[in-house]
Structures are given as C-alpha cells and as structure tokens.
Amino acid sequence: MAASRTFEEPALTVLAPPRPVLRRKRYLLPFGISAAVALAGAVALFVSGTVALPFKQVLVITGKLASKSEFFTDDVVRRLLMAQGVQVHITRAGSRSIATNDIDSYDFVFPSGQPAALLIRNQRQRESKYAKVHKPFFSPIVLATYRDYAEALQAVEQGEPDKSLYYNLPMTSLVEHIKEGQTWNELSHGLNNGNRVLAQTSDICSANSAATYLGLIAFVENGNQIPQDEESALALADRIKPLLTSQGLPGDDMSKQYLAPEGKGLAPVAVIYEHQYLAHQIRLKQQTGEIDRNRVLLYPEAQVQTVPELIALTPAGDRLGEMITNHPGLRKRALELGFRVFEPDGSLSQGQLTGFLKALGIDVPSTGVGDTETFLPSLPLLEKMIERVGDCP
C-alpha cells in the first residue's frame, strides 16, 4: 500500500520595505559632507555677491592706459570688480601717446604721470568735455639694476651693506659717466660688459617714464635749474640728446626686459616704476619664500614726483575711479602689487606699504620722496624738449 504524502502549504514571507536612500547609513556620511560643503559654498557666494552675477547686468567700462594696465589685468582685481558688476576692457598705450591722440571713445584714461594728465585735462577743459580726476596710488620712477652695477656706480646703500635692495644714486655722477662715454668695463673691471654706461628707457615719444627721466637728466645737466624759455629749453635738449639716444632703439616695456631671466644682458640698468620691482619681489617671496637680492633699485637723490591720474571721461569711468580709490579689497590688492596707496583725502599712506612688506619679510624702501626734488620744465617747454630729443612725429 502506497505511503500517504503530506503537502505543506507554501509559506509567504513578508519583507520589511527598504529604507529610504536618504536614511541609509552608508549614504548619510558622504551625502552629509557634500551637502555641508555645498551649503558653505552657497553662503560664501551669497555673501560675496558672486552668486547673483549671472542675473546682474555687467557694466563694461573701457579705458586707455599705460604702465598701470598691470593693475587691471590682475586676476584678483578683475574678480573684485566683477563682484561689483564691473568689467574693464583696456587698450594699452604710452602716457604721452594717450594724451596726444583721440580718447573720446573711452570711459577713462590712466596716464602714468602728471605731464600727460595735464595735457588731457587742459584739452578736455578747452572743449568743455567731462573729466574727473582720481589719484588712487603712486609709484616713483627708479633705476632698476643689479648689485654689482650699483656698486660700480658708487651708489649708497640704504640699509645693511651687501644685503639692502635699495641704493641712493647721485645723479651728477651718473651723468658724468654717460657724458664721458665710459663703458661698464672701464668703470669696473668686475663687470663683463663693453657697452657704454647708460640707463635704458622706453620710447621718449610715448612713455611717461622716459619723458620723466629726460626731465631728470635735463635738471642735473642744467645745474639743478629748469629752462625758462623755448630757446634755452631747445638748447638744453640738444645737449642731453646724446645722453638719452645712445641706447639705440628703445624697448616697449623695460620692466619685462629687466626682470627676464636674461635681464642682465638685456637691460643692466633700466628706468622703470618702483611697483614693478616690488611686485616681482612680493611674487617671488610668496612663491618660494626667497628674495631676489641680486636685483636692486637705484633711487635718484633728487626725486621726480610721478603721480598717475585716473581721468574719468564718463560717469561710468567716474564710478570706476571711486571704486579703485575707496574699495578696501582693491586698495589692499594695490599694495600687494607694489603700489603706494593714497588715502581718500589724498594723503600718501606710506605706513600701509611698510607694514605689508615687513609682514612678508621684504626690505622696505625709503619713502621715494627726498628732500631735494627735481622740477620738470613747464608743460609747453617739456613737450618741445621731448619732441627735440626723441625726433617725435
């Protein structure tokens, strides 16, 4: 008889529903970290105003400027301006070139010195056109060189011997060396350079630095006196012309040649602005922790004041001038780029640059403003001298 079979009913197992993804432990930790980072970033963007940029109307401001173009091409400056809804488009040109050409299509101009600025302001006034002046920062003219060249010129160190980055230079001595046609080898047997002793400049016809150096040489050559009439100005221009044109074809930007790795062969003594040298030292210190003690600055004992002026040609340009002068972030960045920053009341804040350089461990130069000041000829006479020396069109 066949055995009876027993059949069991199939069991039905009811599973608990899966936990929501957001409640799983393996998910919570990475998600929580990512969410926290995203939230912190969003808060930072809201605080800075950057998050609203895609929804803001960006104001494009156009300008024509000389050596101070370095400020507006700086990434940090561009970012700070963009956070305020401003974008600056620049056209580069020498200061005198800016002053002697049409500028009506721009919102602002920024010549590097007062002679060019005065030409522009006078022209705008004659034509009853908009012009508002802002003076955000200052950078004196210097002669950038190398330590062995400074010692050959018997310049006087401002600080500790063989370590200071800054020297005071008696200009009468330099002018005499140039007039005598001496070579660097003749001046010092330690220099392997058969070229004539001189300071190289940018184009006298277009650059404020070169025109200012012309005025400095003229002042020294004329016994610390400025010419009083056209006849004496042109006669003085003829006397100093060989001292300025013996360099041959001038360079476009002497700071780039001087600061190049092969700069000692290209421009052993170059007329530049102080901020260009300081920016090099600041950048090097921040990147490597070191200071370039081979490159040094010569400060002429008789100083020439070269205060750049941002001249607003439209209300948009005026808005930019106000921002550059007063915005804390932009003022701080100007210091980081080596400029001496003016206070809103027009006074020069030497202490800010001093404190910034000391904090980085970089030597601090003197004020750049000596007791003896070089005076430039009146604007009409200076223009005549520039045209005569540079054979300007």
Rank of each mutant, 00 (worst) to 15 (best):
T212L: 10
Q225M: 06
E231A: 12
L187W: 11
A210L: 10
A218Y: 03
A237H: 04
N195L: 14
A235M: 12
W184P: 05
A233I: 01
A218V: 07
A207K: 07
R196G: 07
Y213L: 13
A199Q: 02
A211Q: 15
I217P: 02
N193D: 12
S202K: 09
G223Q: 12
T212K: 03
A210M: 04
N195C: 07
A207D: 14
I178E: 08
Q228K: 09
V197I: 11
K179C: 03
N208W: 01
E230S: 14
D238W: 03
I217S: 03
D203C: 05
L214N: 00
A210P: 09
L234P: 03
Q182M: 13
A233E: 06
L191C: 08
N193Q: 11
V197C: 03
G223L: 10
D203W: 14
E231Y: 07
I226S: 14
K179D: 15
L214D: 01
G194T: 13
C205K: 03
P227C: 15
N208D: 09
L236S: 04
A237K: 00
D203V: 10
F219A: 03
W184Q: 10
S188K: 10
S202R: 14
A233W: 05
I240P: 03
T201D: 00
Q228E: 09
A210I: 08
P227M: 14
N185A: 06
N222M: 01
N193K: 11
A233N: 07
R239H: 10
N224L: 07
Q200Y: 13
Q228V: 11
N195V: 01
G190E: 11
I217L: 11
R196S: 02
A199I: 00
G215M: 04
N192Y: 02
D229S: 13
E186C: 08
G181Q: 12
S232I: 08
L187V: 06
N185I: 05
N224P: 00
S209Q: 06
P227A: 04
R196Y: 08
I226R: 14
I217C: 04
S188Y: 09
S206A: 05
T212Y: 14
L234D: 03
S202D: 14
L198C: 11
A237V: 06
S202H: 01
A237S: 09
A235Y: 01
A199Y: 00
S206K: 09
N192M: 08
I226E: 14
E230M: 15
N185D: 08
S206Q: 08
I226K: 15
D229T: 12
T212N: 10
S209C: 04
I217K: 09
E231M: 13
